[in-house]
Computed example of a mutant assay.
Amino acid sequence: MTTQDLLATCWTTAGDAAPGRHDERSPLTLRERAEAAGAAGFKGFGLLYADLVEAEREYGLSGIRSLFADNGLVHVELELLTDWWADGPRRAASDAVRLDLLRAAEALGARDIKIGPDVEDKPWDLEAWAREFATLAAQADDVGARLGIEFLPWSNIKTLHDGLRLVEAAGHPAGGLIIDVWHTERAHTPPAELADVPLSRIVGVELNDADSQVVGTLFEDTVRRRRLCGEGTFDLPGLVTALRRAGWTGPWGVEILSDAHRALPVRDAAEAAFRSAASVLG
């Protein structure tokens, strides 16, 4: 792997699909998406659970693996597990998704499984969460993957430092953070602080850009108004330099979520995402 390998995260090639919709599935086939990502130059691909279910029905897991291989996509990321800390019916539903993600991760040789925090931002117990996280990290490790939690400024794990507190408390070497620069910037974390994150705790990195002003809620802004790398106000050179200083060599995820991006033909969307991110990486 070179230091320039780029991974198209799940929304970057999803077409007219977005987080928070009643049906989050991409209207595109996995073949269309994988071919667009590979043609653009991406070496990795992210797949949302809802799309994984559809793709497995259409191609089988071995077919998905072949599709990725045929298009040069060697870094596979699966997402998104939520309610892994819950109990009752929500936990039962989450556990069913967990088993599917673990099974698919093993079959596809996935590099990581991405999980989310509590977006309702309810009171939470660090010790209990760390225990659940460690169990999940061990399960990911058993299938050859790593476990990454993405901190979100509107959730119970709002910042880089909140995320580090959780993964350090959990203590499992397979567990760490997904660092999306949108979330570090919107949480007002200075780019230089990323240089101090232990490399062992960085599972994935996601690049994107945005305007200086948030429009609507943070969730609305992140889903509807992200910009291509270099087209917003983020200090992406500073962020990339800090992450490289921490030891990160990739793959670099590219996560573009916007009304404008969703409206593009998938090949144009993938090409624009790749070209702009590659330019920032130099």
Rank of each mutant, 00 (worst) to 15 (best):
P123Y: 13
W124N: 08
A192P: 00
I149F: 03
L177H: 05
L166V: 12
L147F: 06
E185F: 06
G204T: 02
A137Y: 02
T135V: 13
P190Q: 10
G144K: 05
G163A: 10
D180H: 03
V203M: 06
A187V: 01
L199N: 07
A195L: 04
A169S: 14
Q139M: 13
H172Y: 07
D125S: 13
Q139I: 00
W129I: 02
I149S: 09
I202Y: 08
A128F: 09
A187L: 02
V205M: 06
H183D: 04
D162M: 03
D196E: 15
T189H: 04
S155H: 04
L160Y: 09
E168I: 00
A138F: 01
T159E: 05
F151T: 02
S200M: 00
V197C: 09
V143P: 02
I179L: 09
E168C: 01
I202S: 06
V119N: 14
T159A: 07
E193C: 03
I149R: 04
L160N: 07
V181N: 14
V197Q: 07
W129K: 15
W182M: 14
H188A: 14
W154H: 14
L164M: 13
A170Y: 06
E127A: 15
A192V: 12
S200G: 12
N208Q: 13
A192I: 12
N208G: 08
E127R: 15
K122P: 00
